[in-house]
């Protein structure tokens, strides 16, 4: 009983932020997308628990929330790394050989199309459709920072830089 109570208390605390977001949108079913966006902002990804909780609160089946969460590319159902590298694969970046940058990053971190996040949850490497900065192709986002006219060795250098800084901080 004690253990169950503790678990429940931890869950309530864990979901406190969701409650705030749900309140802000009046538990309005039609605001599901902005709700999920804010929830993801808070937790970095959408866990099963959170999806069920949102569904129950909005009085809709979890399958519907899951359906929306899997339909849109922006929602992540798995945790991502602390540093998310988003490599643009729009037309302009593609013809300017963005894939060579992708492979350089994969090689450096031991990642692939099937495994995009490092085990230590430090880095995620993924491609995104056009970021709309085609004049600077190829373009890469590291979290919120935009890098233009990137070369493979520069992209790898960013990783080395982050790792060096992390090591220095320790």
């Amino acid at each position: 009983m004690q253990e169950t109570n503790e678990k429940t208390a931890a869950m309530i605390e864990h979901l406190a932020a969701v409650n705030k977001i749900l309140e802000k949108y009046n538990c309005d079913e039609s605001k599901l997308i902005p709700i999920l966006q804010e929830v993801q902002e808070e937790y970095k990804y959408l866990s099963k628990d959170v999806i069920s909780y949102v569904a129950t609160s909005l009085d809709i089946p979890p399958a519907k929330v899951y359906g929306v969460a899997t339909f849109y590319a922006h929602f992540a159902l798995e945790p991502k790394g602390k540093y998310v590298f988003k490599l643009c694969d729009g037309t302009a970046c593609h013809v300017k050989k963005s894939h060579s940058i992708l492979h350089a990053l994969y090689d450096r971190l031991g990642l692939s199309d099937d495994k995009q996040t490092t085990d230590d949850l430090m880095f995620t490497v993924e491609t995104v459709s056009c970021l709309g900065a085609c004049g600077l192709a190829p373009v890469m986002l590291v979290n919120e920072d935009v890098y233009g006219q990137v070369k493979p060795e520069e992209a790898v250098a960013i990783i080395d830089d982050i790792l060096a800084k992390a090591a220095a901080a320790e």
Partner: peptide, 25 residues
């Protein structure tokens, strides 16, 4: 102002409407 969530098909007008209504686009 509504922010999309990353689905190219939402550029199609009926899909965009579905997306504003909180559904799969």
């Amino acid at each position: 102002v509504m922010e999309g969530a990353g689905a190219f098909v939402c550029g199609e007008e009926t899909a965009l409407i579905a997306s504003i209504e909180g559904k799969r686009g």
